[in-house]
Every structure is written in structure tokens, then in C-alpha cells.
Design a protein around this nucleic acid. Structure first.
Lengths: 221, 221
DNA sequence: AGATTGATGTCAAGGGCGTGTCAAGGTCCG
DNA sequence: CGGACCTTGACACGCCCTTGACATCAATCT
């Protein structure tokens, strides 16, 4: 993880301090702003690739900051912190151009997971294993230099699997990272997408680990 | 799992005593501290991999202890015990960087389940003894570099045995850790799985300790 | 020693459950 | 409207787990 620049805009130190610590611990380069205008200013720096934004801010509403940041930097990843789930509807957040939002109170682990997901979106990087190459920047994937035609979900799923090639990725992780749903996976959606992926890249590259999840073939084995 | 070092920080003996008993019975190596500073001190020991922390503590608030522990040991698993669910929610469950929290009153079984989950969350590690290698990350196992074909339960069972190689693992522990069932193991299920494991890795690696449990052969003996 | 008792090893069903795949909507968007 | 994509239900298929029966074995009693 190449020192991704993260901007944290939050006036409550009781929240920002531990969060900043957590983010730093994960290897991000963290900048802190304590009010709306400051956040807006800091967010224009190209160093920043991801913003975690509290909606309740002094001087300028978080949603407003979000709108303006989005206007000037289309590819910026913006993660909204809302006081309560009821308070700010999904619609408002999406309206303002947020990429994701999370309701307080939240668990640090969950937020960090969301940040990781956002970071994956923000930071273009090339993954590869066993003849498959995934470019998250251009969202293209190749199998032995032949470009694959993948749907968005298929691409995300493949990227997630390849990013941990050789390791088992659990169903929960996949549902959380690719579908961003915490809800139990009762449906066959995940299996269906795995099935489609296998049809396109070859069944032998994705191993089923019964009762746990799936494993993309590592380069060695 | 596997003589995992657990630190319990709790001043109320009515809570700590049965909890410590339960944890010990599950095979954890339990340390007890009765106030904040003591917990902080004990928690810096690398032996400790998991901390169960009461928020209401003498001399130093549990949240503060949590923050400091988190600051010094990023990968430590911290489980917070809160007096009321609302209480910590208000302050924000994340504040101090706890990995999980559970509200009092709680059922012992539930807490133990959370502890198991936290233990599982700890870094994937590779175990090995007597020519058997178990990779929890990829969920693969090898016997002298030959990959074994194991069912989920067989894998978990082998991992549990190897993690305490050279030591006896009780039937009770195995049923609890691998089957996650509290009911007494009246059936022959466990024996059946041990039998299948022996068939795959060689009977001499798993010794029966009559009336108690099983022991995987350590590297030395 | 031989018998007895209880715990363990193994075999052979039986069924439960996780998974793969097809087909039918349903939604979003050009 | 048409097409791409996602979701969902249905169904089949196997692997796995469980269970009961019976053989064995270890330890204790007579």
C-alpha cells in the first residue's frame, strides 16, 4: 500500500484521534482538518486520494464540502460519516457525490474495511497471478495478454480474488468488499458471479474452499 | 485456540472469576488484571494476543487503556465490555480502536464465541510439526510437501491438534473449538474424524490419550 | 488369568447442506 | 424499446457429517 494520502475532516477529537491513529497504523498518510473550509482547502491537494468527511462540521456542512470537492476532483474517493443512519439518507449522500457512507456509531474495523475498499478504487494498481493481470486504473483485465470482457461486478470480484492470490477469501469478505453489504449472503449471487468468472478465465484458477470461500491460484502453486 | 494468551481486565470479581474459569477451560492462557494501570502493564507483554477489557475500571478508564494499548500494539485484539450498549455507542464504539465490544449483561457462551472469533481474526499463521504443515491462510495442509486433501472439519481438527503439538488436547476442547458445540459429545463423530485423519497422515502422528483426548506428535518426540 | 466394563476404532448407510448452473424476472440506462 | 447486468428461485449433484452397530482394546475386578 503505497502511502495513500487520506484526508480526515472531523471536528470531534474523540473521534478523529483514534481514527487517525488507526489509519496511520494501516499505512496511510493521514492529514487532519477540523472544519469545512479547511477540509475543502486540504482536499484540493493532489496528494489526497481519499477523504473521510463528517457531515456535521463547523462553518460549512459536510455535504456542501462533499459537493464542492466532487465538482473539482471527479475521481476523489469520498467517504461520508453520518451521525445517525436516519439523519442523512442515502439519497442525500449520493446526491452530494459521496462514494460511500457509514453511520455512527461504527466499529473501527468496519470503517477500516470500507477505507480499504475505497482505497482499492482510488489507487490504481496492477495485480497479477497465474497468467491473469488486473489493472484497477483502467479497469481492464487480461488472460495471457488477451483482454477479458467482464461486467463491473465480475471485475471487482476478480480483482479481489487476485489481490489475495493463494489465500482463501471468505464469502463474508467478498460480500463485504465487492458487494459492500453486511447482510448475510442468503442468495446465490456470489456463486453465480464466480461461475461466470470461471467460464471466462478457466475453472481451474478459482478453487472452491468448501464452507469458507474461494481461492485464486497463486503463482507458485 | 492453542494456548493463546488472553488478558482479562476486570475489577468485579463476580464477573472476572467465572469468565476466567470459562476461558481457562477453553484452553486459553489467562492473565487477570484488576485495574487500568495493571491492565496496561500486562497488556504490553507479547504473550498477550487478546485483551478483554471492562470500560469501568479503577484509576484509569477502560477506553483510555484501550487507546494506549492500541497505540503500542497495533495488531492486538481488543474486546470491550460495556455496562450498557447505549453508553459506548454514544461515545462511539470505535473511539479507542476496539475490535469488538459486548454489552453487559452477557451470556458466557456468547462472549466465548466472540473470543473465538477474535482469535480466528488474528493473523493467519502457519503451523507445523512432525512433517505436517498447516497453512491457515490458504487452508491447505501438507505432509512432507505433498498436499493433503482434507474436508473442512478434518482441516480444522488437524489445525487444532497441530497447534498444540506435543500436548494433549481434550475431547471437550476439540468439540468446542472445531465443532463449536457446547453439548457433550455423545456421538462417535470426533472419533470418526480422527480415524479419517489418521488414514491420511499416518496413524502414528496422533496418539490417543485414553479418557482425556488426543495428542499430536511433537517435533522432538 | 479370565471376566467385566467402559472407552475407542472402524464400517456402512443416510441424509443434510454447501455449491454449481440454468432460467426467469427486474432494474437501469442509452 | 433494447440490451447489459444483477438478482433470485429452483433444482441437481456430491461431498461431508452424523449416527448406530459392532469389533477391539485398556484397565479394573473377581
Amino acid at each position: 500500500m503505497a502511502t495513500l494520502g487520506v484526508l480526515l475532516v472531523e471536528d470531534d477529537e474523540a473521534i478523529s484521534a483514534p481514527l487517525a491513529r488507526g489509519l496511520t497504523r494501516e499505512g496511510y498518510d493521514v492529514t487532519l482538518a477540523v472544519d469545512g473550509p479547511a477540509g475543502l482547502a486540504a482536499g484540493s491537494s493532489p496528494q489526497i486520494a481519499l477523504v473521510i468527511l463528517d457531515v456535521g462540521l463547523p462553518f460549512m456542512d459536510g455535504l456542501e464540502v462533499c459537493r464542492r470537492l466532487r465538482a473539482s476532483r471527479p475521481k476523489l474517493q469520498i467517504l461520508l460519516l453520518t451521525a445517525r443512519s436516519e439523519e442523512v439518507h442515502a439519497v442525500d449522500g449520493l446526491d452530494a457525490g459521496a462514494d460511500d457512507y457509514i453511520a455512527k456509531p461504527f466499529r473501527l474495523a468496519e470503517l477500516l474495511a470500507r477505507v480499504r475498499a475505497a482505497a482499492r478504487r482510488a489507487e490504481p494498481r496492477d495485480l497479477s497471478a497465474s497468467g491473469v493481470r488486473v489493472e484497477t486504473g483502467s479497469r481492464r483485465a487480461y488472460l495471457h495478454d488477451d483482454e477479458l470482457t467482464l461486467s463491473p461486478k465480475e471485475f471487482d470480484l476478480l480483482a479481489r480474488l487476485v489481490s489475495d492470490a493463494g489465500q482463501v477469501v471468505t464469502r463474508e469478505q467478498l460480500l463485504r468488499d465487492v458487494w459492500e453489504t453486511s447482510w448475510g449472503g442468503g442468495g446465490r449471487t456470489l456463486d453465480q458471479h464466480v461461475s461466470w468468472l470461471r467460464a471466462k478465465i478457466g475453472a481451474d484458477l478459482i478453487t472452491t474452499v468448501r464452507g469458507t470461500g474461494f481461492r485464486f491460484r497463486g503463482d507458485d502453486a
